[in-house]
Design a protein around this nucleic acid. Structure first.
Length: 882
RNA sequence: GGGGUUGUAGCUCAGAUGGUUAGAGUGCCUCGUUGACAUCGAGGAGGUCACAGAUUCGAGUUCUGUCAGCCCCACCA
């Protein structure tokens, strides 16, 4: 029988296995295949760069669910693809152009886009390749891109319909503007960061010379655009001043003092300067009071023309100049330190400038209502549930979505402006004549759409929508969306809204949320910190299976997890353990008859025990997968395969394996292969490569493991008997093993050295179990010879398990005092426990209110403890009288 | 300002619907290389489950409050 190398070296086989899966079309899905649909659409990675640890986690979770369902026999589709990532990708390409000494404007729109497509080709492929190295079992034949023809058609259709329904509109509004990216941003693309700034107190004189009013501002440079000063209508300090005219310092513009309830009486001086063109609140107030909008800051962050010496200055340089000039003019009262939140571009971290410009918006309120309802009704569920609150809270306070971006890379907005009659035409197909005036002077809107607009359609645009494809019918709504909590607002809510709007159904039944992967110190992995760990490098060194296993164990849904190498190594060691257990089995397969099936009578305690363990884990692992508790499922498999199978069963199997009874050997081989093969299938979703390569070598399996059936308890039913006492018996034996090992260690005896053991069992059942399985004590604890005694030997170390006393007789004298001290310590512990249990059992209320089962088990515990106590006391007595 | 979340062994984390004497990985200490595995085996030390109350026969687990950390949302200039 073929054998495998001594150590687990994933690098030697992972690539090959993946290639074989792909070659054999194991990932392939058709809509008309049998089985209930199970579908996940991948959160499309950006084509900006390469796979990072966050992707590795996201893909691993998805692949586990996908592989599990595929094995379960569901018609399983994992739709792969990538995202064009408008701003981010454009910025990357512009960066590389800068390195070449040119820029996009020199290149022109068309040439520039060619460059971006080249970039897409390169990095999109790299991402797909890296997903493969992780083992992701996507249906690659269906790979999509947010800007491919199908997605583009979907985008156009959605845009036009929303426009026609009045849900998309174009308006001149104040929006967040990034002076560096040179584009508008939506509200959620702005990150607010607390910054230590200043609060400048300024005095604005009244026109009539009757003094001045003091205002406070954090942005003095915007005063050039002030067109009013506001106070609260009920502010006694200013009540009778409202309506007066002020002279704006430095500019000498006449501006009104008016009242608006927006103003907070308690902040600053209670009087606020109003700059409608550069502050969202001032903009609103400006509309309410018909104030002029004076734009003083350009899109690039410099000061506008017509501002005299300030024109052309950078906004922050200008601030310094203004402050200087205000001070010189006697308008500056004082400067205070002030901590306040400042908006930054989430992409480049430049301070955002609120500016007035013409942008396209999506009206959110009518779209949001059904999205809220879908979650409230339970049609869509978040895992963990707590995220529903965040989701609903956000949707209930939603504001219109600015979807136009002044970029080139993205879906160009399908709108045309007629220069002849001023008409705006929005159309799914390109337009070359104005339907209104038949003029030919049409200009296409240059702006592109926010990246998330196309991402929002991903669950159905990838399935062929707007055509009613078989895929759409079969797989929509998809089953689960797996994503990080950081993009719930960006993506999840928008997919839900668009899915409900255009398909009339939620895009997915469950949203499975995971946390962020952090570094060993708990910090976010970022480029600026340089603390990112490259998954490709980890895979190269430890294997994809180890990385995957590490990413799912030891964490719970929705919580962040820390990445540290020791954890990957632990996972790798687990893989190596399985590797070697398999190696052991493979080297002992001689004489294996794959048609042999033992009868129940052939099975001994260890066989029945391990088969029951497997059956139990089939149940609990499946349950945990159903609950999305992948970490717990993985933990249980670790326990089954390492502790139960390797540490106990394999050791116990050796005697019969090397023995002379052929039927016993056949039986043990059957059990070994059954457990390993079943365990591999359970483990396959987590560690696909390792389980595949090993299972292919097993004589009791055929075909790819990824297409093998998910284990069922039913497979083992011939060997299971829930009430045969197997577990109690196994507990007794294994506890006895522990005690013998323990005593040996206490005496400094080599754990593998054969040591005589004396047993004293008063209970007939216990005695029978021990007598039938003495070999296990020899195999696991190297106890030999083992004898039964009615009396406690004098010179011996002793231990207790259930009702059984275990002695290690000593040839020479034992250190009696030390042994007494040890036993007394144990006695104390037992007495404490028995006292508290006894107290519990004397408590009337416990007896009357606790379930009978609990009371009963407490009684049993107490009597067991009392038995042990008396036995220990006897023993101590005996030793003291020596 | 609102909301969320975390606080369990030196470190990183599990402990679903409250019920054995609270677990794992890693680190540490002792011992062990006669063919599955030193990426290993055996044993050990190490925890008043942040703190204070409440509910309950019973709380690491439920509730309230306090302290500490992290995160998200938010138009106080």
């Amino acid at each position: 029988m073929s054998n495998i190398p001594k150590t687990y070296e994933p690098k030697k086989f992972e690539k090959e296995i993946y290639a074989a899966w792909e070659r054999d079309k194991n990932f392939h899905t058709t809509a008309d295949a049998p089985g209930a649909p199970f579908c996940i659409v991948i959160p499309p990675p950006n084509i900006t760069g390469q796979l990072h640890m966050g992707h590795a986690l996201d893909e691993t979770l998805q692949d586990i669910l996908i592989r599990w369902h595929r094995m379960k026999g569901d018609n399983t589709l994992w739709m792969p693809g990538t995202d064009h990532a408008g701003i981010a990708t454009q910025a990357k390409v512009e960066e590389s152009l800068r390195a070449e000494g040119t820029n996009r404007y020199e290149l022109g729109r068309e040439k520039f886009l060619e460059r971006v497509w080249q970039w897409k080709e390169k990095f999109g492929n790299r991402i797909s390749y890296q997903l493969r190295t992780l083992g992701s079992s996507c249906d690659w034949e269906r790979e999509r891109f947010t800007m491919d023809a199908g997605c583009s058609a979907a985008v156009r259709k959605v845009f036009v319909q929303l426009y026609n329904e009045g849900l998309i509109y174009r308006g001149r509004r104040i929006t967040n503007w990034c002076p560096k990216c040179n584009t508008a941003l939506s509200d959620i693309e702005v990150e607010h960061v607390d910054e230590q700034g200043h609060l400048w107190h300024l005095r604005y004189p009244f026109k009539d010379g009757s003094g001045y009013i003091e205002i406070a501002t954090t942005r003095p440079e915007t005063m050039l655009g002030d067109t009013g000063v506001a106070v609260h209508p009920e502010d006694e300090r200013y009540k009778n001043l409202v309506g007066k005219t002020l002279i704006l310092p430095l500019v000498n513009r006449e501006i009104p003092l008016f009242a608006d309830s927006y103003v907070d009486k308690n902040f600053g001086t209670g009087a606020v300067k109003v700059t409608p063109a550069h502050d969202p609140n001032d903009f609103e107030m400006g509309l309410r009071h018909n104030l002029e909008q004076v734009k003083v800051i350009n899109n690039d962050g410099t000061m506008s023309d017509g501002l005299g010496k300030y024109s052309g200055l950078d906004r922050y340089t200008c601030r310094e100049e203004i402050v200087k000039d205000l001070q010189a003019g006697g308008f500056l009262v004082k400067v205070e330190d002030h901590l306040h939140a400042v908006g930054h571009c989430s992409r480049c971290h430049t301070t955002v400038e609120p500016l007035i410009s013409k942008q396209w918006f999506v009206k959110m309120e009518t779209l949001a209502a059904p999205a809220i309802e879908a979650v409230k009704s339970g049609e869509l569920k978040f895992v963990p549930e707590r995220f529903t609150k965040i989701y609903i809270n956000w949707l209930e306070n939603i504001r219109d979505w600015c979807i136009s971006r002044q970029l080139w890379w993205g879906h160009q907005i399908p709108a045309w402006y007629c220069d002849d009659c001023g008409e705006t035409i929005v159309s799914e197909t390109d337009v070359d004549e104005c339907p209104h005036c038949h003029g030919k002077n049409l200009r296409r809107e240059e702006d592109v759409l926010d990246t998330w607009f196309s991402s929002a359609l991903w669950p159905f645009s990838t399935m062929g929508w707007p055509n009613e494809t078989p895929e759409l019918k079969k797989f929509y709504p998809t089953s689960v969306l797996v994503t990080g909590y950081d993009i719930i607002f960006f993506w999840v809510v928008r997919m839900v809204m668009m899915g409900l709007k255009f398909r009339g159904e939620v895009p997915f039944r469950h949203v499975f949320i995971h946390g962020l992967v952090r570094d060993e110190l708990g910090r976010k992995m970022t480029k600026s910190l340089g603390n990112g760990v490259d998954p490709v490098e980890i895979i190269d060194k430890y294997g994809a299976d180890s990385l995957r296993f590490m990413l799912v164990t030891g964490n719970t849904p929705g919580n962040d997890l820390r990445f540290y190498r020791a954890k990957v190594e632990a996972a790798r060691n687990f893989a190596n353990k399985i590797w070697n257990a398999s190696r052991f089995l493979l080297m002992n397969l001689e004489g294996f008859d794959k048609n042999f099936r033992p009868t129940k009578d052939d099975l001994e305690l260890a066989d029945k025990w391990i088969l029951q363990r497997l059956a139990y884990r089939i149940e609990t692992v499946t349950e945990n997968l159903e609950r999305f508790e992948l970490g717990e499922a993985a933990r249980q498999l670790y326990e089954l395969l390492w502790f139960n199978f390797c540490d106990y069963y394999i050791e116990l199997a050796k005697t019969r394996l090397y023995g002379s009874d052929p039927r016993a050997k056949s039986t043990v081989l059957f059990v070994l292969t059954t457990i390993l093969e079943g365990g591999l299938r359970l483990l396959h979703p987590f560690m696909p490569f390792l389980t595949e390569i090993i299972r292919q070598k097993l004589p009791n399996a055929q075909g790819s493991i990824m297409l093998a059936p998910w284990p069922k308890v039913d497979e083992l039913k011939d060997f299971l008997d829930a009430n045969d006492g197997t577990n109690d018996a196994a507990d007794l034996i294994f506890n006895a093993v522990k005690i013998i090992r323990n005593l040996k260690s206490e005496l400094g005896i080599d754990s593998r050295k054969k040591t005589a053991v004396v047993l004293k069992a008063d209970d007939a059942t216990d005695k029978k179990i021990l007598a039938e399985n003495l070999r296990y004590l020899t195999d696991l604890a190297f106890a030999e010879p083992i004898t039964f005694a009615e009396e406690k030997p004098a010179h011996a170390l002793s231990g207790l398990v259930d009702g059984v006393e275990i002695f290690l007789p000593l040839a020479g004298l034992i250190d009696t005092e030390k042994e007494i001290a040890r036993l007394k310590k144990e006695l104390d512990k037992l007495k404490n426990f028995s006292a508290s249990t006894a107290a519990k059992l004397q408590n009337e209320r416990f007896l009357s209110k606790a379930p009978a089962q609990v009371v009963q088990s407490e009684r049993e515990k107490l009597s067991a403890a009392e038995e042990k106590i008396s036995s220990l006391e006897q023993r101590i007595n005996q030793l003291e009288n020596l």
